[in-house]
């Protein structure tokens, strides 16, 4: 369980990283916290002749805030988000999510950008950013930037919209208003384990937002607009009633037992909303 030989470069800037990515034409990989990449290299499930370490690259630990969003550099770690070193515009949701990722040792190194780029369907940030309606900022060679909606960034398990020469540089997280409520629930067998099913809910009446996501599926997280609409209209009973059907509709490939488990995760996320006010 040792990786095949590779070269290592510490990129000083995003443009150095994107240039190297372009030059190596797919045979180079970005290394961030290494918490997903290094196990895969060790198992030789991933190979690459060059690792481009972006931990010290300028700009990836930026924080830019205005009245409507906070743009979080991709290089911030789960632990820093957990500890509040990064401003949390989500009324505690992000800190809560960060605290539930893996173990502290993993959180000390793993980055929010790495988690999103890795695109494990069970990863916490993947569902969280989808439910928040966040926007991912990707930069390619020549400083070319694109902004991609988090909902839709995943194209499948471990597959994203990132082009071969692109680096994820920041995540623009919309601010929730003071009255917003959220709920988040993971079904795990043990602490620090990836979720088997995940539900995330945001209800921000002031901004007219009510979004529900079911995550830890076989692919991208799915929005549940019908259930969300009923919830937004304060028709809780109807929302919960229709949930099972909507889950079946958005996850048709899942076994019935898995569909039920995902419905449970969402139901509990909705229930958690009333108890997760005011963090």
């Amino acid at each position: 369980m040792k990786p095949a030989a590779f070269d290592y470069v510490r990129a000083r800037s995003v443009s150095e990283a994107t240039d190297l990515l372009a030059k190596k034409e797919g045979d180079a990989k970005i290394l961030a916290g290494g918490q997903s990449l290094t196990p895969m290299l060790n198992l030789r499930l991933a190979r690459s002749s060059l690792l481009i370490d972006i931990k010290r690259a300028e700009g990836l630990r930026s924080l830019e805030a205005d009245g409507s969003i906070v743009a979080i550099g991709a290089g911030w770690t789960h632990a820093e988000i957990e500890d509040g070193a990064v401003e949390d515009p989500t009324r505690g949701l992000m800190r809560h999510v960060a605290r539930g990722i893996a173990y502290r040792a993993v959180r000390n190194r793993g980055t929010i950008g790495g988690s999103l780029a890795h695109a494990d369907p069970a990863a916490d940030w993947v569902s969280t950013m989808a439910v928040l309606g966040a926007t991912l900022v990707c930069e390619g060679t020549g400083g070319k930037r694109r902004r991609v909606a988090a909902d839709g960034f995943l194209q499948g398990a471990f597959l994203t919209q990132l082009a071969a020469d692109e680096v994820l540089v920041a995540i623009e997280v919309p601010r929730l208003s003071a009255q917003a409520r959220w709920g988040y629930y993971k079904v795990c067998r043990k602490a620090g384990e990836f979720a088997h099913a995940l539900g995330a809910v945001i209800h921000d009446p002031a901004k007219n937002i009510c979004r529900i996501v079911v995550g830890a599926t076989d692919g991208p997280p799915k929005l549940l607009p019908r259930t969300a609409a009923a919830l937004a209209a304060d028709r809780m009973a109807e929302a919960l009633d229709g949930l099972d059907r909507e889950i079946v509709a958005v996850l048709p490939e899942h076994e019935p037992a898995a569909q039920r488990l995902h419905a449970t995760a969402v139901r509990r996320a909705i229930a958690a909303m009333s108890t997760t006010m005011d963090h």
């Binding site: 196990p39 198992l43 067998r189 043990k190 602490a191 620090g192 384990e193 990836f194």
Partner: peptide, 13 residues
């Protein structure tokens, strides 16, 4: 074949 799939109880469990 990895500890992702083979679950060992930890202190929390």
């Amino acid at each position: 074949s990895t500890l992702i799939d083979y679950l060992l109880p930890g202190p929390v469990e």
